[in-house]
Design a protein around this nucleic acid. Structure first.
Lengths: 205, 205
DNA sequence: TGATTATTGGACCAATCGGTCCTATATTGA
DNA sequence: TCAATATAGGACCGATTGGTCCAATAATCA
């Protein structure tokens, strides 16, 4: 991947996070990435739509590296990993001072009904995310109640986090996300067998 | 409120729910409301922005009547009311076949960072919603554990529902919302005192 | 009746949109 | 050296944006 492409992708990601895809113009991206003009931009991307797709890809890769990766840490107890992952989401949101939402949730809300191409790609993002959590839950099953529904629980976790990030952005108050993260851990702890090896350790404040 | 105004508001609400505020043009609204032209529209609204504000107001009023009202039903046990409210959110979403998201969440994701006027109004919507839940929780406090944090719990409920509606829309699958609604009731039930008068009755499927 | 409000219809505006095309010059790596 | 790629800069396109202005006619109601 060329340097310039990444520069464009980063500028576009930042602009889209701030104003949304529709309200980000190609000219804005050109200014943001300090390109010389339209021809320069269209030398790297064949359309605004394709740029959007690649921005989404890149955002997911970043999230996979900085967030989802925690779910796979082999040396940590699975349920502790889940707790650490939730902390990581909070930390990620804290980086922007509570502003900016989830790049996936934002695009979803903006384009899910209007643009099938984006809808499908965002659906895939959520599915990969949910699948990571399901694997972790499977791995943790000796510590969990027998009736835990991994599909349902993984969706619940994602929905709670996405909703929390959105509310945090609207209220401009990070404690909203922190409180929900705390409650989410309590909810997860509810699925843990009594007397199971210590878990959700991080839920205690 | 004049007939025509409501007609315009309804047409605009429908278009905005489908494509978002930015991607809904005044001309689209004129067509949707079957007005004769721009002058006709600007006879009723002084700008697109003002139209947006009034659409948001109306959406909240609708939600207050068809959803929030349940939280205040005087003849029903408070915790049962909460459960019924969650069911109502599911039913509301089912009306659109899982499509369309929350009008508040959608606007929030689209405009929270870019348009302070909308951000403030959406914040007020969430606050009024949360306040209704807090009142209910206060009313139900004899049945709840002493350490229940009403502020935190009310935020959690809203975030989970907003996130759930968004995911449901992306996946085009109502069972996502149904599952999260079910889990949310279980989470609420977790705060209920042992041996408290039966509550969260509707959580049983 | 007369005044107010509602409706119709179209011309017009500057700005912005995504995108194309063209020419010319650097830079790079085989 | 030669070809491919990258950078630069600008003209241009049709379509759409939110919004204004104007003139004329209908409908309403005191």
């Amino acid at each position: 991947m060329s340097e310039r492409r990444l520069q464009i992708l980063d500028a576009a990601a930042s602009l889209i996070a701030e104003r949304g895809f529709t309200s980000t113009s190609v000219d804005d991206v050109i200014k943001g990435a300090k390109l010389s003009g339209k021809s320069h931009f269209y030398h790297y991307f064949k359309s605004k739509e394709e740029l959007g797709y690649e921005v989404l890809n890149r955002q997911f890769e970043r999230f996979a590296e900085r967030g989802l990766a925690i779910l796979r840490e082999p040396m940590i107890d699975p349920l502790d990993r889940l707790s650490l992952f939730i902390d990581a989401v909070v930390a990620l949101q804290a980086e922007t001072g509570g502003r900016r939402g989830s790049p996936f949730g934002n695009l979803a809300a903006e384009l899910a009904d209007a643009h099938e191409g984006f809808r499908i790609r965002i659906e895939a993002v959520f599915e990969r995310w949910a699948s990571q959590i399901r694997s972790l839950l499977w791995e943790a099953r000796p510590q969990l109640h027998d009736d835990v529904d991994a599909v349902r629980l993984s969706r619940f976790i994602i929905a709670a986090l996405e909703g929390a990030v959105l509310m945090t952005r609207v209220k401009r108050d990070l404690t909203v996300l922190e409180g929900i993260a705390f409650d989410l851990k309590r909810f997860i702890a509810m699925h843990v067998r009594d007397g199971a090896v210590q878990s959700m350790r991080h839920a205690g404040q």
